[in-house]
């Protein structure tokens, strides 16, 4: 089965593990989980952390909801600026305005500083 379009029967009926493609690749999700689990396990007890087969599938759906939510809030910021193109600053504004996305503040501000890492801008607000 190739790439499914948003209006095909798969998305209308819902995506499941066996009957259709996932919105995000499971191997990539598992690699990110494995890296995060490796850090936690190495710091705590040094043992390897195993990941259930269902966990990347749940993350595939959860990340889809997360991207949709973040995109909607960024689009609201885009409309406030009377524009039609979503920019990085709109995502940063959406992250700062939402308490739920507090853990992303470092991601959006550090990326604005560019490749220098910790230097550059510090503080909140749209640039």
């Amino acid at each position: 089965m190739r790439q499914a379009r948003p209006y095909s029967g798969i998305f209308c009926g819902g995506v499941s593990a066996r009957t259709g493609p996932h919105a995000l690749p499971l191997a990539r999700i598992k690699k990110i989980m494995k890296r995060s689990a490796g850090e936690a396990a190495a710091a705590a007890d040094g043992g390897a952390r195993m990941i259930s087969g269902e966990a990347p599938v749940v993350f595939s759906k959860a990340c889809e909801l997360f991207v949709a939510e973040l995109t909607r809030r960024a689009w609201a910021a885009t409309l406030d600026g009377k524009r039609r193109t979503v920019h990085r600053e709109d995502v940063a504004t959406a992250v700062h305005n939402t308490d739920l996305f507090d853990f992303l503040v470092d991601v959006v501000t550090a990326d604005t500083a560019g490749g220098t890492g910790g230097g550059g801008h510090d503080g909140n607000g749209a640039l």
Partner: peptide, 15 residues
């Protein structure tokens, strides 16, 4: 750049 920053946000969300 908006797509790029959302890619970063998704990875951060998973971690």
């Amino acid at each position: 750049d908006a797509k790029e920053v959302i890619q970063e946000c998704v990875s951060e969300f998973i971690s």
